[in-house]
Simulated scan of single mutants.
Amino acid sequence: MRYRRPGLDVATHVILIIGALIFMLPVLLALMASTHTLPSLLSGGLALLPGSEGLDHYIQLLTQPAGGVAVPTWRLMLNSLIMALGIAVGKLTISIIAAYAIVFFRFRFRMLCFWLIFVTLMLPVEVRIVPTYGVVADLGLLNSYPGLILPLIASATATFLFRQFFLTLPPELLEAARLDGAGPWRFFRDILLPLSKTNMAALFVIMFIYGWNQYLWPLLAASDADYATLVMSLRRLTIAQDGVPPWQLATTMTVLALLPPVAVIVLMQRWFVKGLVDSEK
């Protein structure tokens, strides 16, 4: 039931619009600043209107190296995209298989395995960065896509969420699948995966953004410019040249770094919201 209160509806929409504008203000300022020249930005005041450069800075970054970055930005975006997709797909694959084994298979130390996975939530990447770097270096995976992706694909959070969802499924579903002659693989492929689509979509968006925004690990694992990511290269671009960092290019790269995550959220918004609030989970 929805109450009709025109005054409350108007006040709610006004608050939402103000909140959206507050959140969007830094993005709008970066977008406007990317169209100005460096002297214009240094002259004082906020860049609230488009400048005279238009898309020139975007074309410059996408087609040629700039500042302290040794490769064009399109290559950085490609590296970041490969890393983000690899992390998102890897996390989903490992997590759903691990949750499936924990919930539907009966073996010794099953719950111990689950709690060992869950306890890794207390060990973020920053805590285990030194031993992780040592293992990757010993395996010869530095400056490679596997070296960027593999250390980050384990996810206790996704495993826990899939486990909780699987526990809500009625036991009769498994019994019916057995009566129909479905083995473990067929039950997983034909029943569990279709039922988990909304959960997978919501987690994919979260994991993609997590992978795209990685800074510390690519900074250590990718000393070669050919494997550098966009987020880590943004810091190198702000290194001062002749005393003045190229802020007009830094804001341009910032806007470019926002585009893929925003595109993923817009394209998967319906599935993302449904996966978070669906009452049938």
Rank of each mutant, 00 (worst) to 15 (best):
102 I>V: 09
214 Q>E: 14
98 A>Y: 02
152 L>M: 14
223 S>Y: 06
117 I>H: 04
149 I>M: 05
132 T>Q: 12
225 A>D: 04
129 I>Q: 03
197 K>R: 15
240 A>Y: 05
199 N>V: 12
210 Y>T: 08
132 T>H: 02
98 A>H: 04
201 A>V: 15
203 L>N: 01
117 I>N: 04
232 M>G: 01
182 A>E: 00
185 W>Y: 12
130 V>K: 09
188 F>L: 01
201 A>R: 06
119 V>S: 15
239 I>P: 02
131 P>V: 03
152 L>W: 03
217 W>K: 03
155 S>W: 02
236 R>P: 04
140 G>Y: 08
197 K>H: 12
175 E>D: 13
209 I>C: 07
185 W>A: 12
121 L>Y: 14
146 P>D: 09
223 S>E: 10
98 A>T: 08
176 A>F: 07
136 V>S: 02
135 V>L: 15
164 Q>L: 14
110 R>E: 06
106 R>V: 11
168 T>C: 08
163 R>W: 11
99 A>H: 03
136 V>L: 08
125 V>S: 13
220 L>D: 03
171 P>R: 09
203 L>K: 03
145 Y>M: 09
121 L>N: 14
113 C>K: 06
223 S>K: 14
178 R>W: 06
172 E>L: 11
126 E>T: 14
199 N>F: 12
136 V>K: 02
154 A>F: 15
115 W>G: 04
208 F>L: 07
125 V>N: 09
239 I>F: 09
126 E>Y: 12
132 T>F: 06
191 I>G: 00
175 E>A: 12
144 S>C: 09
165 F>A: 14
139 L>I: 08
238 T>E: 12
223 S>G: 13
185 W>V: 09
224 D>N: 13
204 F>E: 00
178 R>V: 08
169 L>P: 04
197 K>F: 13
109 F>H: 13
214 Q>N: 08
121 L>R: 13
212 W>Q: 02
218 P>H: 01
134 G>A: 10
206 I>W: 09
233 S>N: 06
206 I>C: 08
229 T>M: 02
195 L>P: 04
235 R>D: 11
211 G>H: 01
161 L>M: 15
153 I>F: 06
126 E>W: 11
131 P>Q: 06
211 G>V: 00
142 L>N: 05
194 P>T: 03
112 L>G: 15
212 W>N: 01
122 M>S: 14
145 Y>T: 05
207 M>E: 14
210 Y>R: 10
127 V>F: 10
139 L>F: 11
125 V>D: 09
119 V>L: 13
141 L>F: 05
234 L>H: 04
125 V>E: 14
197 K>A: 13
197 K>T: 13
188 F>D: 00
159 T>L: 07
217 W>L: 02
226 D>R: 13
237 L>D: 00
206 I>P: 03
135 V>M: 11
147 G>S: 11
232 M>C: 01
126 E>C: 07
208 F>E: 00
156 A>L: 12
